[in-house]
Amino acid sequence: MTLDDLSSHASEVITPISTEYKSVRLWEPPPNSQGLAALLLLNILENFSLKAFGHNSSDYIHVLVEAVRLTLTDSLRYLGDPNHVTLPLETLLDKNYSHQRAQRISVDRAMEGVKPGQMTGSDTVYFCVIDSQGNACSFVNSNYMGFGSGLVPKDCGFPLQNRGANFSLHRNHLNCVSGGKRPYHTIMPALLTDSAAKSQKPQLLAALGVMGGFMQPQGHVQVLLNMLEFGMNPQQALDAPRVYVQYDQKTEEWWVNLEEGIDQQVAEELTRRGHKINWPITGHARSQFGRGQIITVGEWWNPSVNQDDHSTRVLWAGSDPRADGCAQGY
């Protein structure tokens, strides 16, 4: 990296990508962000009756885990810098494609032979703000691994990030390292709107994010489903025990990490179905399940509230107990 590399770098105004899930639309940053992974995950899960499974039941977690495996495999294969490679975004986000992927999932047995690319760590900060006029900011900043690259520019008080760690070294890969190219990265602040008709302006429902490397799309979807499918308020949705699906490069095995609070019987049943389970994850190790913040506009997540009444603009906020953030009015 040279000084010219840095001086010629510029920020970009980008067009977000999105998908519909029932009555809402989730908006994420486009590639080279892994926001695509959250959308792919939602599209696959839309093919299952998640509410009928029950929150954090063995059926629910099994289907979630299998969908995550398919999603990470696709995103790590097809995601890169759109200024350097052609990405099949329309195909990947097509509902027919996700339906085909969902058909690979067996309800009673874990899939075999699903392999993603390399996964590494995270060191990230997320916050969201909504003002009295309804303007929202969903924001992520990250050095990535620990203190990033560990390189501190002379006379500066910050280290340079090391997002290049997620480049591929395979020559023909879409995300192969190259000069002037941006790597696959895990940063993905999100916004949620209603699924308004094209002739209408979408109404903001939430600003949300869950930090934590490759946990981020998994965290986004789990927290969102806690509200959409199970009627939890923002704080309850963040408090609920989570699942983290992780790939071990050395053994080429998928591991399912279950946070304390998930029933032992569920862990045992998932083991029977062929998953490799770490349970219960307690104490400081719970940081692997991400750290999220949410602000919602109104009570669209509350099944007892008339959803046709859009008169209320009360803001609800939640802050993850796994971190040191807080929900605050001003």
Rank of each mutant, 00 (worst) to 15 (best):
I187N: 01
L93T: 15
Y244L: 08
C326H: 01
L72Y: 15
Q203H: 09
L41W: 15
V24E: 08
R171G: 00
G164W: 00
S23Q: 08
Q265W: 04
L93E: 14
Q203S: 10
V245F: 11
P159N: 14
G212I: 15
A206R: 01
H99V: 12
A67I: 04
W301K: 04
G329I: 00
I105T: 03
M188S: 13
L79M: 11
V107Y: 13
D324S: 05
E299C: 08
S178N: 11
N56M: 09
Y126R: 05
V245G: 00
V221G: 02
L174H: 08
Q222E: 15
N302R: 04
W301H: 11
D131F: 13
G274T: 11
M119A: 10
P241W: 12
A10F: 09
L41N: 09
V85Q: 14
Q235W: 05
R77D: 05
N226E: 11
I61V: 12
S11R: 06
Y21G: 00
N175I: 03
Y330W: 12
I17R: 08
R171F: 03
V125Y: 13
V305S: 08
M119D: 02
R242F: 12
E12P: 09
D248I: 04
G113V: 07
F289Y: 09
D324H: 06
C156M: 10
E112L: 08
D4F: 06
T15R: 10
R272S: 13
N56S: 14
G121I: 05
N43S: 15
T312Y: 06
C128F: 10
V152Q: 09
E112T: 13
P303D: 13
S138W: 03
D74E: 15
R313Y: 11
N143Y: 14
G274E: 06
